Amino acid sequence: MTIYLDHAATTPVHPDVIQTMLPIYTHSYGNASSTHSAGREARSVVQRARDLMASLLGCAATQLVFTSGGTESNNMAILGAAAARSSLGKHIITVQTEHHAVLHTCQHLEKLGYEITYLDVDNNGRIDLKQLEEVIRPETILISVMYGNNEVGTIQPIVKIGELARSKGIWFHVDAVQALGVIELSLSSLPIDLMSFSAHKIQGPKGIGALYIAKHIQLEPILHGGSQERKRRAGTENVPGIAGFSKALQIFIEHRYEMQQKMEKLRIEMVTRLQKQLGSEQVVINGHPTDYLPHILNISFPGISSETMLMSLDMEGIAAASGSACTSGSLEVSHVLQAMKLSEQVTASAVRFSFGSASSLQDIVTCAEKIVTIVNRIRNNY
């Protein structure tokens, strides 16, 4: 039986979410844009889901646009803002440690004549607010910063960034894919203009996401066709996915506190066991020491490559990740860890463990035991 510790990549769909979606596939299967009764029934499902999510996130239902996931939400926010504000300037600020859905979108804009500033981070993965203020220009139109990093879990000072952006009349986009359901969000009170979400990180279905758009923001659509989503995102609505997303968010938020406590305990247990058995100098924790997402733990085992550790863990029935891109069957060093300017020994040996609702203390005990065995075996063979 696999011990699954890669919830930051994706999560198993919650049974209650599946039960919410099944009747929509079999009974409420109409196109939500159709005017007949089947269409009206599907449209009602979408509206109820939107209303529920809005109440859970502290915003108006009209401020939520459903997308195909976090990648599309990021693209919609950045490309849509760039097009809408191009007459005011073509300078965008983001961070070197962003998800590729943000970085590659910004690189695409560079080809179209936009200038992108990629902020540095410190050894813990945090940006310097002073540097951010220094790189702002009169022609800066957008700042895009991830709430909590998907590889090391570091949380950025989102409120302070948002306040700075607002004082300069700059739109502020936040990729909150990993933070959703983990960090309390009240969107109407946050200085944020755009925020991206994805369902499959919170035990919802794959292929559905959302973008929060503040009332004063007018984005240029990146998909053209029908008039769905108030003419902001064309395409037939993924009705079962939308219903499943709202149910997953409801479950996650209802159990957020107990989940946070559980994740923190699992994180501490793993770190404590590994440091005790391997020695603290042989177990390097990557990311911010206090401001982190509790379900993400990035550890380096100096002298043992990420690839070797992951393959060894997989053979023991444990699923983890490197948090880095896979190219031609080999792992590249994480751009996040490189941006943090960590030593080559640390960056080349990093493994990300990420916990979920089904993760148990016994899973962590077993995983720690297996890691100790693997590390000792490899080091003794050298």
Results as ranks from 00 to 15, higher is better:
T2N: 13
H7Q: 04
A9E: 13
T10Q: 14
V13K: 08
Q19Y: 07
L22Y: 11
Y29R: 12
T35S: 10
A38T: 09
S44G: 11
R50A: 05
T62D: 14
Q63S: 08
V65T: 14
S68A: 14
G69M: 09
T71S: 14
T71C: 09
N74S: 12
G80V: 02
A81G: 06
H91Q: 10
I93D: 01
H100L: 13
K111Y: 05
L112G: 02
T117H: 12
N124E: 12
R126V: 10
V135A: 01
V135T: 07
T140P: 01
V145H: 04
M146D: 12
G153R: 04
I155W: 08
E163T: 15
G169D: 12
W171K: 05
H173R: 02
H173L: 03
L185T: 03
P191G: 05
I192V: 15
L194T: 01
H200V: 09
H200I: 09
P205C: 11
I213N: 05
I213C: 04
E220L: 08
H224V: 08
G241H: 09
A243F: 10
L249C: 06
M259Q: 13
K265L: 07
Q277V: 00
G279I: 01
V283R: 13
Y292F: 15
P294R: 01
P294I: 02
I296Q: 02
N298P: 04
N298Q: 07
S300Q: 08
S306R: 15
M315E: 15
G323N: 10
G329V: 07
S343E: 11
V346Q: 11
F353W: 05
S359I: 01
L361Q: 15
T366K: 02
C367W: 02
R377L: 09
R379C: 03
N380Q: 14
Y382E: 14
